Structure formats: C-alpha cells, structure tokens
Amino acid sequence: MGSVQRAMRLLECVAEHENGAPAKQLARETGLALPTAYHLLRTLVHEGYLRRDKGLFFLGEAAERLSSSSAKQKRRSTVAETLAHWRDAIGAPVYYAMYRDGEIEVVCVADTPGNRAVEEWADFRETAHAHAIGQCLLSQLGEDARRDHLDRYPVRTVTPYTVRDNDALLRRLGRARRMEPLFEQQEYALGTVCAAIPITVGPTAATMAISLPFHQADRLVEATRRLQDEVGRLLGSLAISISI
C-alpha cells in the first residue's frame, strides 16, 4: 500500500508539470528519497503510466486513458443526477438517448419503484418507429439517413397503434416541426404514453423523453413543457456531456 501511495504521489506531481520534470525535482517535491523515486519512476514508465524523454518525465498513455475514463464517468454521473432531479420534479421517468453510429442508444434512465420506466420488451434499436425516443431521433436526421435506418430496421407492428409502414412514418417525421416534442400513445407499449424533446448539438442527434401510464395521459403535455423548460435552462452543461 505504501508503494502505491508513493507512486500516486509521483503521478500527481508529474501531472502538475506540463513540460515534464526530472527525477530529482519529482523526488524533492514529493518528499521521496531519490533511490525510491528512481525505482518507482522506472516502474511507472515500464507500465505505461509515465514516459521519459531527454531526462524528463511526462504522463504516459495509460495515465491519459485513466484520466479520459474518469472524465467520462463524471459526465455520466452529471447526466444521471440531472435526470434524477427532473424525474422527481416532474413525477415521471426521464430518459436520455442519442443516435450514434447509425443506432438508437438509450444512454441513461431515471425512474423510481413508483414511476417505472417502460420495459424494453422489443429492442429499442429495432423499433425506433414505434416509440417517441426513436421518432424524435429520426426526425433530426436527413432524409437519406432516415431511409438508411428504415432499410435496416423497417417498420413492423409492435402494438395495434403502431404506424403501419415506412412511408407513413416518413410522412409523420416530415411534418414534425424543428425542435418541437414528439408524442406517441401506446405505439410501443400498451398502457403507456410518451413524449420526447429533440436536442441537437453539432451533428449529434439526442433527446430527453418522459413516459406516463395511459390513465395519466392528460398530464403528458404539461409534463413535457416542464421538461422543455428544465432542459432549456441546463442545455449548456448537457451539451458538454452529449457524447458520453
């Protein structure tokens, strides 16, 4: 444990020197004996956490991967906390999804035992035509990208209320107004109504969505408006996390 702690001190010290630092300086600043510092520095270089160039030590690829992973996890935590806040404020499950590499990806969901998220009983990626999340994401794509998606995942009946064919879906998406929410009732899951709000940052299509049981359908428009207001206030910080 002591060796690990000393190695971490060295890593932190190196990270503070953007232009690199020699072993003697690192030993002095961390309070380590020079032989101990040399031994740990060699080990860290061997493992890829540091690299040595002309007698100076810099962070290596392994340390940079750790930093990137930590930053990504922090962004995920920020989004999860935000969704949980909105879930409690609105009283409905909240979803964050995006269209990445030609696929629908539900990134984060916030629900509670009393407000359960919709069960993914049919693969979300293959049924974008049937749920508000997928329809919202497809509405943000260009016509060619939409048709490409539907060539891979053609419209099929999921419930009696599902849109009937590709052309009908494309007409619906074509009528969608830019940055306006999309609503669906029981098209993916019987007894459930949903709404999704488009979020576009650069080339990335994303969405925030909510779902409610059918007997609360009269709440959907107001709850969606509340979510729009919340998203509008925090869009700057969410944009930073758009690619998690």
Rank of each mutant, 00 (worst) to 15 (best):
G2E: 14
S3P: 07
S3K: 12
A7Y: 02
R9T: 07
E12G: 12
E12C: 09
E12K: 09
E16L: 15
A21D: 06
K24G: 05
K24Y: 07
Q25W: 02
Q25S: 10
A27G: 09
R28T: 12
E29F: 04
E29Q: 14
L34W: 01
P35Q: 04
T36V: 10
T36R: 06
A37V: 01
Y38L: 07
H39G: 08
L41N: 02
H46R: 15
E47S: 15
G48I: 04
R52C: 11
R52I: 07
D53Y: 10
D53V: 08
G55W: 04
L56T: 01
F57M: 02
F57V: 03
F57R: 00
F58H: 13
R65K: 10
R65S: 03
S67I: 14
S70K: 12
A71H: 13
K72E: 14
R75E: 14
R76F: 13
V79Y: 00
E81L: 09
T82A: 14
T82P: 01
W86Y: 13
A89K: 15
A89T: 11
I90P: 06
V94A: 02
Y95N: 02
Y96N: 00
Y99T: 00
R100T: 09
R100Q: 14
D101V: 04
G102S: 08
E103P: 05
E103M: 12
E105W: 14
V107I: 10
V107W: 02
V107A: 08
C108K: 08
A110N: 03
T112P: 05
G114Y: 13
G114D: 14
N115E: 13
N115G: 07
N115C: 09
A117E: 08
W121S: 15
A122V: 13
E126D: 12
T127Q: 08
A132H: 03
A132F: 02
I133N: 10
G134K: 04
G134H: 04
C136A: 11
L137V: 02
L137I: 05
L138A: 02
Q140C: 01
E143C: 05
A145Q: 12
A145N: 07
A145K: 11
L150H: 07
D151H: 12
Y153G: 00
R156M: 09
T157R: 12
V163N: 01
V163M: 04
V163I: 15
R164C: 09
D165S: 06
D167A: 10
D167C: 01
A168R: 11
A168Y: 07
L170T: 02
R171Y: 08
R172G: 14
A176G: 03
R177S: 11
R178A: 11
R178V: 11
M179W: 11
E180G: 02
E184F: 04
Q185D: 14
Q186K: 13
Y188W: 07
Y188A: 05
A189S: 12
G191I: 07
V193D: 04
C194D: 06
A195D: 00
A195R: 00
A196R: 04
I199W: 08
A205Y: 00
T207M: 03
M208Q: 03
M208E: 00
A209H: 01
I210Y: 02
S211C: 08
P213I: 06
H215D: 14
D218S: 15
V221L: 11
T224R: 05
R225C: 07
L227D: 05
R233E: 11
R233N: 09
R233W: 07
L234E: 13
L234G: 08
L235Y: 09
G236Y: 11
S237Q: 08
S237K: 08
L238N: 10
I240R: 10
I240Y: 09
I244Y: 12
